[in-house]
Simulated scan of single mutants.
Amino acid sequence: MADEATGNGFPSAEDVDVEALFTALREEIRRSGADPGSGGAASDTERFAARAEAERLWPVSADRSLRLRPGVRGGLGTPVKAVLRKMMRWYVEPLAYDQRSFNAAALRLVDDLEHRVASLEAELEGRREAERT
C-alpha cells in the first residue's frame, strides 16, 4: 500500500519523491531570504520586500518594552529592570546611535548603487539597440 506509513510513522523510501521534496525545500529557503548567496537574480517584488524590511529595521534603539513575568518574580523584577535599564542607557545609546548612522548610510549607498546600475543597464540597452540598427 503506497499511502500507508511504515511502522515508525514515516512513509517508506519508495513513497517519497526526494527530488520534488528537495526542490520544494530549496524554493522555501529562497523565499524566506535565508539563502542570500543563491545566485539568482532577485525579482522586483523580492527587492521591494527586502527594502521594506531594511527600512523597518534600521532605526536601532536601546529602548525595548519590558516583558512582564507572572507572579512574585515579575512583580519584583520588573521595577528593578526598569531602573537598571535607565541607568545603563547612557552606556548603550551611543552604540545604538552609531548603528543607526551606519544603517542609514548603508541604505543610502544601496539606493545610489541601484540607481547607477539602472542607468548603466539603460545605457547598455541603448548601445545594443544602436548596434542592431
Rank of each mutant, 00 (worst) to 15 (best):
Gln99Phe: 06
Glu131Thr: 04
Thr45Asn: 04
Val18Met: 09
Phe102Gly: 03
Asn103Phe: 04
Thr23Asp: 11
Ala49Leu: 13
Arg64Asp: 04
Asp3Glu: 15
Arg31Phe: 00
Met87Tyr: 00
Gly77Phe: 02
Pro94Cys: 07
Asp111Met: 02
Phe10Leu: 15
Asp44Glu: 14
Val16Phe: 12
Lys86Pro: 03
Gly9Asp: 02
Tyr97Glu: 15
Pro94Lys: 05
Glu123Ala: 13
Asp112Ala: 15
Ile29His: 10
Met1Thr: 14
Glu28Tyr: 07
Leu57Lys: 09
Glu125Gln: 12
Glu125Ser: 07
Ala42His: 06
Pro11Lys: 15
Glu125Ala: 05
Leu25Cys: 09
Thr45Pro: 00
Trp90Pro: 01
Pro36Gly: 08
Glu121Ser: 09
Arg67Val: 13
Arg89Ile: 04
Thr6Gln: 07
Ala96Cys: 14
Glu27Val: 03
Phe48Leu: 14
Leu68Val: 11
Gly40Val: 06
Phe22Asn: 02
Arg30Gly: 07
Arg85Asp: 06
Arg73Glu: 06
Val110Asn: 04
Gly74Ala: 08
Ala41Ile: 13
Ser119Ile: 05
Gly7Leu: 15
Leu57Gly: 00
Phe10Ala: 14
Ala52Ile: 00
Gly71Asp: 05
Pro59Ser: 11
Leu84Tyr: 08
Asn8Gln: 08
Glu125Phe: 11
Leu95Glu: 10
Val72Met: 11
Arg47Leu: 12
Ala13Glu: 14
Leu120Cys: 05
Thr133Lys: 08
Lys86Trp: 11
Ala41Val: 13
Phe48Gly: 00
Glu53Thr: 09
Arg85Met: 01
Val60Gly: 01
Glu55Val: 05
Ala118Thr: 14
Arg85Ala: 06
Val60Trp: 10
Ala24Gln: 15
Leu95Asn: 11
Arg127Ser: 00
Thr23Phe: 07
Glu129Asn: 06
Arg89Thr: 03
Val60Arg: 13
Arg47Thr: 10
Ala24Met: 10
Ala2Lys: 05
Arg26Phe: 05
Leu120Ala: 10
Ser12Gly: 15
Leu84Asn: 14
Glu93Thr: 12
Gly77Lys: 00
Ser65His: 10
Gly71Cys: 05
Ala106Phe: 06
Ala52Lys: 11
Val117Ala: 13
Val60Ala: 15
Met87Arg: 12
Arg30Asn: 06
Leu109Gln: 09
Asp15Gly: 02
Ala49Asn: 11
Gly40Leu: 12
Glu53Ala: 13
Leu25Val: 06
Trp90Asp: 03
Ile29Ala: 12
Arg85Leu: 03
Leu124Met: 10
Asn103Gln: 02
Ser38Gly: 15
Val117Trp: 02
Arg128Ala: 01
Val92Pro: 00
Gly75Ile: 06
Arg31Gln: 14
Arg47Asn: 07
Trp58Gln: 10
Ala34Arg: 09
Pro11Cys: 07
Met1Asp: 12
Ser65Arg: 09
Gly37Gln: 01
Ala122Pro: 04
Gly71Phe: 08
Asp63Ala: 09
Ala24Gly: 04
Pro70Lys: 10
Arg132Ile: 06
Gly39Leu: 10
Arg30Cys: 04
Arg132Gly: 00
Asp17Gln: 00
Arg51Ser: 03
Asp17Pro: 00
Asp3Arg: 12
Arg85Phe: 01
Leu68Glu: 12
Leu57Tyr: 01
Gly126Phe: 02
Thr23His: 03
Leu107Trp: 01
Ala54Trp: 05
Val110Cys: 07
Asp17Thr: 03
